[in-house]
Simulated scan of single mutants.
Amino acid sequence: MTMIKSNAEQIVTRIQQSCDKVSRDVQEVCPIIVTKNRMNEEIQEVYSLGFRHFAENRVEKLLERQKAFSQEDIVWHLIGPLQKRKVKQIVNQIQYFHAIDRLSIMEEIDKRLDSPLKCFLEVNVSGEESKHGFKTSEVFEAYEVAKQYSNIQIIGLMTMAPFEANDEAIRNYFRELKEVSKKLQSTSTLKLSMGMSQDYPIAIEEGSHFIRIGTAWFE
């Protein structure tokens, strides 16, 4: 058994255990393979194991991956910040965008889209200056503003916990995002994109639907 296959089995097991712990259906959780800095051979092995959701945090890198992996069943996620000048290059090449982090990017995205794009509002729950995203107090305005754009389909909220935070703090950050999403929900249920290699079990326990895992697959 290769290291990647062993890692994948461990991730699947931990996802199931986390779901069982809080009585969630494992089908509610979508693991995303973050391919940043990985070799194409590594990505091909994960694909061969049956995983289909892949992500990059930079436009150029995602477009490079798409050239290397043209399989039609791959679902592409852009999970990093997007500059206005790069919007037209990427928005019609992806199925999900996880990082609407400011009001000013919405009009450009909407204008460049050929069809609706599933998007998340990025929320800086921890308040770190180094992180992008709306403050929790700004999310409600952003959610309302997004409604005026027919091609932007806000399906949920995204956040990242501080890397150095302990488990209790991480849980509190994820729990706060879930509470914000509950206040926003009306006719539709919003999804949560939270959890990475170091904290995805906690994220699942706190309601995450999309977990963005990178190094845990490969190292």
Results as ranks from 00 to 15, higher is better:
Ser18His: 07
Ile79Arg: 00
Glu60Arg: 09
Ile33Arg: 02
Phe69Val: 00
Phe54Arg: 07
Val87Ile: 03
Arg171Glu: 05
His132Glu: 15
Asp114Phe: 11
Leu82Val: 07
Ser188Leu: 14
Val145Asp: 00
Asp114Ile: 13
Met39Thr: 14
Asp101Arg: 03
Ala146Gly: 03
Ala55Trp: 06
Ile11Asn: 00
Ile105Asp: 06
Ser126Trp: 10
Ile109Glu: 06
Glu9Gly: 07
Asp167Thr: 06
Thr35Leu: 08
Arg112Val: 12
Lys191His: 04
Ala161His: 06
Ser104Asn: 12
Thr13Ile: 11
Phe163Ser: 10
Trp76His: 02
Leu113Gln: 05
Ala55Tyr: 08
Phe218Ser: 04
Glu138Tyr: 04
Ile79Thr: 03
Val12Ile: 14
Arg212Glu: 01
Asn166Trp: 09
Glu45Gln: 14
His77Gln: 02
Tyr47Leu: 15
Arg14Thr: 12
Tyr149Pro: 00
Val22Asn: 09
Pro116Phe: 07
Glu141Phe: 01
Gly207Ser: 09
Ser126Asn: 10
Leu184Gly: 04
Lys5Ser: 15
Phe97Trp: 04
Gln83Lys: 07
Lys118Val: 06
Ala146Asn: 02
Lys182Arg: 14
Ala161Ile: 12
Ile202Val: 10
Gln185Gly: 04
Val29Ile: 15
Ser188Ala: 13
Lys86Gln: 07
Ile154Asn: 00
Ser193Asn: 07
His53Asn: 14
Val75His: 08
Lys86Arg: 06
Thr136Arg: 06
Arg38Thr: 08
Val87Arg: 02
Ser150Phe: 10
Ser18Asp: 06
Ser70Asp: 08
Ile211Cys: 06
Gly80Pro: 00
Ile79Lys: 02
Ile94Tyr: 04
Asn151Ser: 08
Leu192Pro: 00
Ser188Cys: 12
Thr187Gly: 15
Ser23Trp: 03
Asn124Leu: 07
Thr35Val: 11
Ala8Met: 09
Glu60Met: 08
Val125Trp: 01
Gln17Leu: 14
Gln185Lys: 09
Glu205Thr: 08
Met158Glu: 03
Thr13Lys: 15
Val87Met: 02
Asp114Thr: 14
Met196Cys: 01
Thr159Ile: 09
Met106Ile: 06
Ile11Leu: 13
Lys88Tyr: 07
Glu129Pro: 09
